[in-house]
Simulated scan of single mutants.
Amino acid sequence: MKVIFPTVCAALAGLSTLASAQNVTELGFSYSSILYVEPDVMHEEGNLYGIQARFVNYSDIIAAIEVDYAFGYMDYDGSGTIENIPDSLFEARALFGPRLFQSSYSDLHAYVGIGQRYLSDDSSGMRSSTGAYGYSRQQYYWYIPIGINLRQSLGRGVSVSLRAEYDYFLMGRNFSGIDEVCGGDAGDFRQSSGEGFRVSANIAFPIARGGRSMIVEPYYRTWEIDDSETRLLSTPNCNGISAYYYEPHNTSDEAGVALRFVF
């Protein structure tokens, strides 16, 4: 959480700046299905329920703060199976970029920014169907989102927006509580290679006078991260005095839908 705190502070600082520019505020909920896979090792899948906040200023330069939090339960399949593992996912992003095109009915923006993604997966105290012990895991990604957003007015306050984004992976860290099972050292693995993509489409339509409207947004997000560094850790209860460990190549796919209200 010490790593997340500076990102949140930066986001809050950005909000005060945007507020003076009469930004649009979107608040709402999300539901998604997520699949995490370490090929030939394990996979987890489950559903997440979340809240979303968007603070956006549309002008010649787009500026936005996006904050998501979701919570749910995952089912593990690897060294046996474990059901209902608590998971939480937090993401904070700051975006800005120029308008590339504008007409009476549409506008096109490009954007770049900075993002942080934090995932907590905690099977501490659980045992799989084959007797394997679970442990806690925290995952951090830092990345640069690079994207394009097209918004088209359909008249009578209704609009459709399409977004496509590439996420340039800067670095990641995985904290694995293998010491909970093996004793000795906890795992702290650095990742330096990977990439992400995301696409979304939303429709906004008025629900009340005074500019109030609602957005329905289906979305898809994916990550592919390569093997982490390898570290020699003391694991006296599992592999003798010490053993080499790493966070293996993995993919994460999330498909969901959001419902947000515009103020």
Rank of each mutant, 00 (worst) to 15 (best):
G97K: 09
S103H: 06
Y111L: 04
S104C: 07
A94H: 04
L108R: 09
Y118F: 15
F101V: 05
P86S: 00
F101Q: 10
G97D: 04
P86D: 01
S88Q: 07
Y118V: 14
L100M: 09
R99G: 11
R93E: 15
Y111D: 03
L95G: 03
E91P: 00
Y111H: 08
D121C: 04
Q102A: 15
A94D: 08
P98G: 05
R93L: 11
F90W: 03
F101C: 12
F96C: 07
F90A: 12
G97W: 09
R99T: 12
F90Y: 10
I114L: 14
S120R: 09
E91L: 07
L100C: 02
S106F: 03
Y111T: 05
I114Y: 15
G115L: 02
P86C: 03
Y105E: 13
Q116I: 12
D121W: 06
F90K: 01
A110V: 11
S120V: 08
A110T: 09
F90L: 12
S104M: 06
A94Q: 08
S120Q: 11
S88C: 02
Y118Q: 13
P86M: 01
Y105G: 15
P98K: 04
I114E: 04
F90D: 03
D121S: 14
F101H: 14
I114S: 11
Q116C: 11
G113R: 04
L108G: 10
F101T: 02
I114D: 05
L108E: 05
A94I: 15
G115W: 02
S103V: 01
S106V: 03
L95E: 05
D87V: 12
L119I: 07
P86G: 00
S88G: 06
L95V: 01
S104Q: 15
P86T: 00
P98E: 07
F101E: 11
D107I: 01
A110G: 11
G97V: 08
S103T: 10
S104Y: 07
G115Q: 06
A92C: 09
Q102L: 10
S106P: 08
L108S: 09
R117W: 09
L119W: 12
Q116H: 10
E91W: 00
G113E: 06
R99E: 13
R99D: 02
R99A: 10
V112Q: 05
A110K: 00
D121R: 14
L108A: 07
Y118L: 14
P86N: 00
G113F: 01
L119V: 12
A92G: 10
Q102M: 12
Q116D: 08
Q102F: 06
Q102T: 14
Q116R: 12
P98S: 02
D121F: 04
S120H: 09
A110R: 03
L95Q: 04
H109Y: 13
A92T: 14
Y118N: 15
S106Y: 09
A110M: 11
F101M: 11
L95T: 02
E91N: 13
V112E: 03
S103I: 00
L89N: 12
G115S: 12
I114H: 07
L108T: 06
D107Q: 13
L119G: 07
L100S: 04
Y118P: 07
Y118G: 14
A92I: 14
A94G: 14
R117G: 07
S106E: 12
L89V: 06
S103C: 06
E91G: 05
L100A: 06
A110L: 09
G113Y: 10
Q116T: 14
S104R: 13
L119Y: 09
L95D: 01
